[in-house]
Design a protein around this nucleic acid. Structure first.
Lengths: 326, 326
DNA sequence: GTGCTGCACTAAATCGAATTAGTGACGCGG
DNA sequence: CCGCGTCACTAATTCGATTTAGTGCAGCAC
């Protein structure tokens, strides 16, 4: 029985009022005096007929749909992004909005097309947020929060007595911008704590800054690690004793390379991940990492895009999940 | 300079024709005779003014928007789902449509709300596809293809001389329905090949069907594995020599539990994953797994929802990525 | 009884594109 | 020169909800 769509007019007819009145009632428009009895009639009719407002018609009239678009590009939906999405979605739903996500290598053009056809109320472009500083950010303070989470990570290592720390960068170019930001933050934290600046290294070329690490490996970019012989620590340099990784994935790759060389965490080298994905817990040794209240940031982002005050209910501070590698 | 939206009327005015004509030109409506010169004028005006059709208005008129909604629920966007999305998106884009994804624990109600506000041309609900047989499936044959991919997995093990095979089920209830389907398929394949039926086990209770495995572990549901003492193989039963896992994640958990017990793959027990996520390649030993041409299925799904013929260009057959565990 | 206020509503316009049903001008056959 | 068809367009309607600008009536003050 695919009877055609129930419109506002149908509801109005069924309850013996005009569409205008029906609209006023169903949208709880203020400044209108409509007796409770009439309101009740309208609402009952709407419920009985199973009326649902037509999204496109409403969007046309209101100027934009009640959708919010989140562009995640090729970021994996795991760990904190998953929670971020959950928080965002929940808070938006609480305000009659819906979250929809765009995935994939998004040329600017495809995102624009998506925006044109969905006509969303707002767009949160994480790819852009990650790729550059974006003055009017809608990420709920996600990027800003990163500094304190990085501090959580470095402080844990420092608290364990490590002073010569390495910072492992991801090999994925798309993450380069934010990785550099994280590295700066790590250095700032170290300076504040009176520690030497963390040594930067990428896993593609494990030799890192001035040979400050004792293990060397190169990666073929995808999955397999190729191991090359160890490098002597040059005179005047001390070996790194702990590594803070850009994220869990980077940490896991490092662990994998270490295992290939017979190195063991945390004894040979302590490793701490960042932004728990759950995967790290299955590794042996299990990865110590930092957990972030991404859901809180998601909720803040939602409030930001809807123009609501974001001061209330700040995200919880990040914490260290202590497992075995550091 | 937030000059207001450029509408079709603006384009019409700028090129000295009516909105009707402009619409005909821009939509390449057949059965209309419009001289190339006029067409050129309209198109040029559209380009110069930067006209973009208003998605909501078009949706209102056409009956639905040019969006396609994919509900992935809490499935991780990794491995084949990522490729599925890529293929779906590309094929839809080629036909002027846009893919948008819904994430998260989706009560039916929230999905419905999303559908109401986005008013999409079609909805592909993977959660539903995974949870039950769905007569008019729009998944591009994904579920159907599973049988042949399962065969790829089992056949590889058989080809290596294994006859007593276990099938490791995921501990996640949300995957139970599809896991059972996979198990049935594995058994069918085994029967066809003259092998004993694969033993089912879940990682939550590793003891499995009638003690057919030599290692025992229980999991706390999230990340950590708790190890309990080994169980003797009961009389009249032979130990499993190889395990086909429901997916890479399940395989990795198994590997993790084995490492805790000092068991080594493939010697103590061969393990093959399913649906390469890339992660498996970083493990030591690196996980052997099955790769699926999910992108092809995504493209087929796109054609299915758009009502295009899906016969052409079937997805490529699945292949085994041989690494170290089997 | 006139003027005014407040109540309980409604007609009509609006958002922007697509589409149906034409219209006027011109050419051509008869 | 009449009739017909084709060409090159266009006016007007439609999709469904929201919103502005009212309308008609009752009740009250003066």
């Amino acid at each position: 029985m695919p009877r055609s769509r129930v419109t506002l007019k149908d509801v109005a007819a069924a309850s013996g009022v005009s569409a205008t009145t029906a609209s006023f009632v169903l949208n709880r428009v203020t400044g209108q005096t409509i007796p409770p009895a009439t309101q009740e009639r309208v609402r009952r009719a709407a419920a009985e007929l199973g009326y649902v407002p037509h999204g496109s018609a409403r969007a046309l009239r209101e100027g934009s749909s009640r959708l919010v678009l989140l562009n995640v590009g090729e970021l994996p939906v795991a760990g904190s992004l998953r929670s971020f999405i959950a928080g965002l979605d929940a808070e938006l739903a609480a305000h009659e909005h819906t979250l929809l996500v765009r995935h994939g290598r998004t040329g600017d053009a495809t995102l624009r097309r998506a925006v044109e056809t969905a006509d969303p109320r707002a767009v949160i472009d994480l790819v852009k947020v990650y790729a550059a500083d974006d003055p009017d950010r809608l990420d709920g303070g996600w990027i800003d929060g990163l500094a304190t989470h990085t501090a959580t990570q470095i402080d844990y290592l420092a608290g364990r007595g490590h002073t010569r720390i390495g910072f492992a960068m991801p090999s994925d170019d798309r993450l380069a911008r934010i990785a550099r930001l994280r590295l700066q933050q790590a250095r700032t934290v170290a300076r504040t704590r009176g520690l030497p600046a963390p040594a930067e290294f990428t896993l593609d070329d494990f030799v890192a800054a001035a040979g400050t690490i004792t293990a060397v490996a190169t990666f073929d970019g995808h999955a397999q690690a190729r191991v090359v012989p160890p490098v002597a620590v040059p005179d005047g340099h001390a070996a790194v004793t702990a590594v803070a990784a850009f994220d869990d994935d980077t940490a896991l790759r490092l662990l994998s390379a270490m295992a290939d060389r017979g190195l063991h965490a945390p004894d040979d080298l302590a490793v701490i991940g960042f932004d728990d994905t759950g995967h790290g817990g299955f590794w042996r040794p299990a990865l110590t990492t930092v957990r972030i209240d991404a859901e809180g940031y998601g909720r803040r982002a939602a409030r930001a895009v809807l123009g609501l005050p974001t001061d209330a209910a700040p995200p919880a501070p990040s914490t260290v999940i202590v497992r075995s590698t550091a």
